[in-house]
Design a protein around this nucleic acid. Sequence first.
DNA 1: AGCAAAATTTGAATCGATCCAACGAAAGTG
DNA 2: CACTTTCGTTGGATCGATTCAAATTTTGCT
Lengths: 358, 358
Amino acid sequence: MASLTAGNRRPVRLADIAKAAGVSHGTASNVFSRPEIVREEVRERVRAAAEAMGYGGPDPKGRLLRAGKVNAIGVATAEPLSYFFEDPFARVMMAGISRACDATGAGISLVSAANNEQLAWNIQSALVDGFIVFCIEGGSRLVELARERRLPFVALDLDSEDGSVAAIGVDNIAGAGRAARHLTDLGHRRFAVLALPFADGRTGLVSAEQIRVAAYAGTRDRLTGYLQELSRVGVEASKVPVYETANDVASTKAGLETIFAADAPPTAILAMSDRMALVALEWLNARGLNVPNDVSVVGFDGVPEAAVSEPPLTTIAQPIAEMGRLAVKAILESDGPVSRHQLAVELIVRASSAPPRG
Amino acid sequence: MASLTAGNRRPVRLADIAKAAGVSHGTASNVFSRPEIVREEVRERVRAAAEAMGYGGPDPKGRLLRAGKVNAIGVATAEPLSYFFEDPFARVMMAGISRACDATGAGISLVSAANNEQLAWNIQSALVDGFIVFCIEGGSRLVELARERRLPFVALDLDSEDGSVAAIGVDNIAGAGRAARHLTDLGHRRFAVLALPFADGRTGLVSAEQIRVAAYAGTRDRLTGYLQELSRVGVEASKVPVYETANDVASTKAGLETIFAADAPPTAILAMSDRMALVALEWLNARGLNVPNDVSVVGFDGVPEAAVSEPPLTTIAQPIAEMGRLAVKAILESDGPVSRHQLAVELIVRASSAPPRG
DNA sequence: AGCAAAATTTGAATCGATCCAACGAAAGTG
DNA sequence: CACTTTCGTTGGATCGATTCAAATTTTGCT
């Protein structure tokens, strides 16, 4: 019953069963791909031969070459693969992408790598019909790599103004402006900014010069949004400490230490990501500072965790799932011109912001 | 500068640039795959031709056929794709799988589908070197499909004793036993069980007969573990209501309604998943019953959410990430005999369990 | 220069299927 | 019965690369 399939390791090809069944490979192929056009008697004979020889159906590797389409989209990032399942932002985005793929029947290939060299190879050899590129850090390199494949691709959240690449992002300036406006409306006048990277590999307080030459336009735009709005109420940019982090726990805490070591510590913190904002909530609480009474905190992104933090976080919500959906659509319908979308964001007021004391 | 690559849609093949550069395909191929063995002058000529014609490097579709290896493993489930990013258990498992893949440089392909027909096709045509199959519901069909591909595959958490399929799971009997023992040690004598499905498509209190013919061995094993341990302290199996749910919010609540409608409601609940246990915590709280003082709850799985629930959940932790790691290892090193692993679980005592009142 | 050894390049074979024009046989038609 | 359709089958071409043994060119040495 168990037949000989166990130890047998020589792969069986369609041609083998065609010969065994005494038909041409063309007919054998039809038995699997369009069984209705093959005479029943022949069809059964071929199927029997396949069964007997332990043939598992046409190998997709072969079919792929003819068909051309893989029917899968690649999602690439310069982070390790586990990023997709552990980062809150990535997870929401992937959920959006998933739903769009489910709807169209496309599969998802996760492309990523520990080191940079491996990344290049992985992108070059990914079997996909197109790429969605997560541009967190090292976005430009990733985009370059994807572009070289000459497959349709969209950059998510791309920090670049290069109009020749399709990109989906949010209006960072307006979003940051909304956040700052919310705080100035509450009466705050002393601020500090927890910033995403302006360039790779450094953290710490940033100077005006460093901001001007920022590699990441997204970070710069958010800062611009903040500062524009603050200047409306007479808060000078030079008076607002901007601490650049690596968007991780350690550098965010270091930033908070620095910020609160000042003579006149801020009454409000503008964080460029919910991740940093959540770290701030924890840090402030451990430090005995009450949020929102001593310090208000406003995040950016709108990840689900922000709704259940202690206290719940006021933040700028990106339409993350919608961005994922649009990205898939852009790949699959990859028509003529490169499509660029800039989506609106929304201020969600929760309990982490309140008027300043006194 | 921008060259003619924009509107140009005719694909350029390696053979085209070989001809353009005046070399054979063999040499052209070497320029990309082993540039060091090609004379510099020739190499540059070929590269120039490639550049001029807008060639994006060797197409992996072609390479694949020769190479045989895709360098990616497929992760399959009968749920929609978003399951991978939304279900807590799946996320932890995927994180473990990701890390193992990162370490070995393999990619991940997510295979799934809305409907059953699509699923079959997706598995048949997935470009992967092996499958990791998530057996939640409909596991046996999935295993059957994967087996037909004649690729290495492992079943995670498989509810089946079929020794011919590689599987990685936990010791359900021992784990359930630990959970029950914890509660009996605390002095509990009145129990109720929230059970995972014994078979597809039904929910409600289950009879001894239904348990005996259970389709899912994992569910049966957990129940066996519970009841064995309870019988040690003289609690008869027939006195313990066992409510079969679909592991979702609605059916779990229905189960709780039924269970607590009884004359002598339980002082302790044994839930076969953290998901159900977390629903129970919420339901009990809404009902005005204090956990753990009025009712103790013990879950099963050890998802991260269980650590931060209110109150934190006592549970049986599966080594989820370790299972993922082992699964990848089993696929990539797919050596001789089918490997079956049964891992140990661990009781994690948190605040949802305490001695009964009085 | 003469010859063996080393370095490059060539081109046919292969990977595993699908597609399609052409062909043979069976069925239908006048 | 000759003649068109219809139905099924055949086998060569193709998808886009890699591989490797053999052919060719270079280099090294006396």
